[in-house]
Simulated assay, not measured.
Amino acid sequence: MSEQLPPTEQCRSCKAPIRWARTQHGKHIPVNAEPSTSGNVLLDHIGGVLHAGVMRGNQLAAVRRTDRPLFLPHFVDCPNAGEWRKR
């Protein structure tokens, strides 16, 4: 990561600590504050913006061989995730 991660916020539903990041498509995604061994989101904090790269397949395997932490999207374990999904 180029810069230190920004402070955490609380999920408005379950109050868990999260960070908001921007995907490559410009959408915002809530990410759990702590890294996870089953994570698939690579975070980079550059120029005050937290960028989220969702890793799949070979990319994911390559990142897991490094010391870079991976994070889970908060939708995975938020008990109230369904309330926030767009229809």
Rank of each mutant, 00 (worst) to 15 (best):
H25R: 05
H25V: 01
L72T: 01
G26E: 12
I18K: 05
F71T: 06
L60Y: 05
L43Q: 09
P30N: 08
C78H: 06
P73W: 01
H51K: 12
A61D: 00
E3P: 13
M55P: 02
W84V: 10
V41L: 14
A21I: 06
E3M: 15
C78S: 03
P79T: 09
L60S: 04
P17H: 07
T37D: 03
V49K: 07
A62V: 00
P6D: 11
V31N: 05
V54I: 09
T37F: 01
G47C: 03
H45N: 06
R68Q: 11
A16R: 03
A62F: 01
I46H: 12
R56V: 07
F71P: 05
E3Y: 08
A33Y: 12
N40W: 06
V31L: 11
P6A: 09
G82P: 05
F75H: 13
N80Q: 13
E3H: 15
W84F: 12
Q10L: 10
R64G: 01
I29Y: 02
N80K: 13
K15R: 12
W84P: 02
H51Q: 13
H51A: 12
I29T: 10
Q10H: 10
N32C: 15
L5Y: 13
K15E: 15
C14D: 14
H28R: 08
R85Q: 04
S36L: 05
R85G: 01
L70V: 00
C14F: 10
P6M: 13
G26C: 06
T66C: 06
W20R: 08
P6E: 14
G26W: 04
P73R: 11
N32L: 14
G48K: 12
L5A: 06
E3D: 15
P73G: 15
H74F: 15
P35T: 10
Q24T: 13
H28N: 02
G53H: 03
V54K: 00
Q59L: 02
R65A: 02
R64S: 01
P30M: 06
E3A: 15
A52E: 04
D77W: 04
S2K: 14
L72H: 02
D67I: 12
S38W: 01
K86C: 10
G53Y: 01
T23M: 01
A16C: 08
D67W: 15
A81Q: 15
G82W: 08
A52F: 04
P35M: 09
P73F: 04
A16N: 08
G26V: 09
F71G: 07
Q59D: 06
L70F: 00
W20Y: 11
E34S: 11
R68L: 12
A61L: 00
E3G: 15
R19T: 11
N80C: 11
H51Y: 13
A61R: 00
C14V: 08
R56K: 09
G47E: 05
W20N: 07
R65W: 01
K86S: 14
K27W: 14
S13A: 09
I46K: 14
G48V: 05
L5V: 04
A21V: 10
G47W: 09
L50T: 10
S13H: 14
P7Y: 06
I46V: 07
D67A: 14
E34I: 03
